[in-house]
């Protein structure tokens, strides 16, 4: 008989280390490909050259350095950040709602966030004294939507999967109508940027915005991750979690707030990128099991790898990133619907 489950999981750090290695490989490839090819060894030396005390002989074209620092690296960084953030938001929503199909995009939280952001732009209050306030409005839109969808779908203290998903669909449709209306009344330039936004864009975030979003995502993410064991207990259901010492109401408020904050921050910087929070947690569970203490860090890394790779493809075929993820996510959703009947009807 094997008792390996009772030993301290030494394999966790090893698995995470392997994923970090895979992430570095994907980053190197993503930095290399594009109209101008930058070999990974050049990327490596260009990056290290910025460190004090490191002086490589500059034998690479100057344009490589400009392209890398100004275009590719910020985009790869945003891809990694957003991929990890959306995965984390998906995992948190799924544990709390006990439904593997819950995800910011499907629940309508993303469109609520972008509606908040676009209202702020339309009203001309997207920055105040030079500070981007867009993430705050996106956060408020995301949080209000989450509360709305949760209240609509909650029946007798439970959240049945089908009412949850239907509530998400309806809210999404409703918000799309408002977005289309906004697009039809604003000027042509804003309309174009709104439209592109609703399909996701990792390449046009300002450095200041990147900083704000990073701070929001990392701080919320660390707090959520520290409650990983409580997410395991929440999967057992509110009643069982309560009996095992979890303050369920507090966890609900914490999770809804922080996951909405993450979603809002991401949406305000990069628009709507769907299905990442659906596909990656599922793949993570298949590979590593359901223990959130491993699933969260591993899922975040896989999410980062996935979105950097997907965005590289999007760049090469000149398609918006949201289109690429939806092309993968749509069929994946249908696959889950057909195979995970228990999760859908449970």
């Amino acid at each position: 008989m094997s008792f390996h489950r009772f030993h301290v999981p030494l394999r966790w750090p090893l698995l995470l280390l392997a994923l970090v290695g895979a992430l570095l490989v994907v980053v190197a490839i993503a930095c290399a490909v594009g109209p101008v090819l930058i070999p990974p060894q050049d990327t490596f030396r260009i990056l290290l050259n910025r460190l004090p005390g490191v002086h490589f002989r500059v034998d690479w074209p100057e344009t490589s350095e400009v392209i890398l620092w100004n275009i590719r690296l910020p985009r790869v960084y945003m891809g990694g950040l957003v991929g990890g953030a959306l995965t984390l938001a998906g995992i948190a929503f799924q544990a709390l709602l006990r439904n593997s199909l819950a995800e910011p995009y499907i629940l309508g939280v993303s469109s609520g966030g972008s509606l908040g952001a676009m209202l702020a732009i339309s009203l001309g209050i997207s920055t105040m004294k030079g500070i981007p306030t867009l993430p705050i409005f996106a956060f408020l839109g995301a949080l209000l939507t989450m509360i709305l969808v949760y209240q609509i779908s909650r029946i007798d203290g439970r959240v049945p999967a089908h009412t949850l998903l239907l509530a998400g669909v309806v809210v999404n449709l409703f918000f799309s109508a408002i977005l289309l209306y906004l697009i039809s009344i604003v000027g042509l330039t804003e309309a174009r940027s709104f439209q592109f936004w609703s399909m996701g864009d990792l390449g046009s975030t300002s450095p200041r915005m990147m900083l704000v979003v990073s701070v929001l995502v990392f701080s919320s993410g660390l707090i959520l991750t520290s409650y990983a064991r409580n997410f395991n207990l929440l999967v057992l259901g509110e009643e069982s979690a309560t009996y095992l010492g979890v303050d369920v109401e507090r966890m609900k408020i914490l999770t809804f707030t922080l996951a909405s904050l993450i979603t809002g921050a991401v949406v305000s910087a990069c628009g709507m990128i769907g299905f990442v929070g659906l596909m990656i947690p599922h793949i993570g569970r298949m590979l590593f099991g359901s223990d959130h203490r491993l699933l969260i860090p591993a899922g975040v890394l896989i999410g980062a790898i996935f979105l950097i790779a997907a965005d590289t493809i999007a760049r090469l075929i000149v398609a918006p990133i949201g289109v690429v993820t939806a092309m993968c996510g749509g069929p994946f959703f249908i696959y889950l619907l057909r195979t995970q009947r228990k999760s859908f009807f449970g």
Binding site: R5, S100, L236, S240, L244, G289, S290, D291, S343
Partner: peptide, 24 residues
């Protein structure tokens, strides 16, 4: 407490479920 409803939506191993008893 051993509650009536013990359905779980995600796959957990039995040993992982029992380990959760140590959480408090």
């Amino acid at each position: 407490v051993v509650p009536q409803n013990t359905d779980i939506p995600f796959p957990f191993l039995s040993s992982e479920i029992v380990l959760m008893g140590r959480s408090p």
